[in-house]
Design a protein around this nucleic acid. Structure first.
Lengths: 193, 193
DNA sequence: TTGACATGAGAATGATCGTTCTCATATCAT
DNA sequence: ATGATATGAGAACGATCATTCTCATGTCAA
């Protein structure tokens, strides 16, 4: 009953998702073939299709996985900076700035994927929208924890700034938009005291 | 010496660019084949390739054309609202809100195109970046005309808000992010008095 | 050991697409 | 009118890619 494989399905799935993350983010969904995933992960095409019955489903699994790992990365970085005494809502921009300064930065994977109309279906769009909602919820909770007036409104404003910063930093290959967004956030926080 | 065609090159080019605009924006670059452009514009493949020697060059021409027409649309809408007494920097968000509420809205064509890594080369990226720089320059000039302190800084902040609003409105299929961005802009303008 | 079965490597299939080519037709100068 | 030339319609070519299939090999239960 148990598989004869040297590598069990969970391990193979993890290798596939890790490869998918690297290569989908770097080259876009349309720029990556299933054979690329195979080459990168070492998981054969046959197994790939037994784990994920189509590219669409692999993309959905990648987006779901990326949502989890990105949010963990982001919140833990914000929490760490907050623990060091920084305003959490401003720490969010520093986290993004650090990311944008790293090699291979290409903006928000979810925004980029949403733009690839030919590769994306409604299931994907739901995952992408849910990611943005979750990010907004997190920012709103930070605003509420900070005791600011109208935390929901402040969270939304910070969210728009954050997305704008990610997009412009990618398109302009510059961190200046992130700096400007952080300054704007500081003023908005001040106005919400 | 003069062409035997019923339709001259300039007219054909205009038809191609108009079709390219409709279909590239709606379905993304990868989602559109040269045959689609032919079907939509009525310009034969042969002529298409004589006007634009490759899809890459057609895409570059489309981006350049879209930059011009979009900026004209945007600035004229802002100017009209400003003439009616509205703060120009806030009118920018109303223009975007109007656009986002229209059917077929899919966010900023330049941001979307930049995300299609497989279809985009450095020439395209330069056009895209130049578009964002031009938008920023325009916003900065509005801030300077308004007599605010640090117009360049204010222009950058408004720019980030505007891009964030366009992206989030598309991803969430909602105009709430644009409302939030406008509110944030109002606070930032107030802080720049 | 042996046979049933799962696996990997990679060939085969069928579709799509950018680009070029063919050929019948239409235009213009003479 | 006629030949040189340009055009449109669409077939053809070559490449890429998602997906499936083949077959040789390795694993496990008995």
């Amino acid at each position: 009953m148990s598989p004869a494989a040297t590598i069990d399905d969970d391990t193979a799935r993890a290798a596939v998702l890790q490869s998918a993350n690297a290569v989908f983010y770097a080259r876009g969904i349309a720029g990556v073939g299933m054979a690329d995933i195979r080459d990168y992960s070492g998981v054969s095409l046959r197994r790939l299709y037994s784990l994920y019955p189509s590219k669409r489903e692999l993309v959905a699994a990648w987006l779901t996985d990326r949502h989890t790992t990105w949010m963990e990365w982001f919140t833990s970085l914000v929490d760490r900076r907050a623990a060091a005494g920084e305003e959490p809502l401003l720490a969010a921009f520093d986290a993004i700035a650090e990311w944008a300064a790293s090699p291979g930065y290409r903006g928000c994977a979810f925004v980029n994927s949403a733009a690839e109309t030919a590769e994306i279906d409604d299931t994907h769009r739901r995952i992408i929208a849910a990611h943005k909602v979750a990010l907004l919820t997190y920012l709103t909770s930070l605003a509420a924890d900070g005791g600011y007036a109208h935390p929901e409104r402040l969270g939304r404003m910070i969210g728009v700034l954050l997305d704008g910063a990610m997009v412009e930093a990618a398109v302009l290959s510059s961190c200046e938009p992130i700096v400007a967004a952080r300054e704007a956030a500081a003023l908005l926080i001040e106005a919400s005291q």
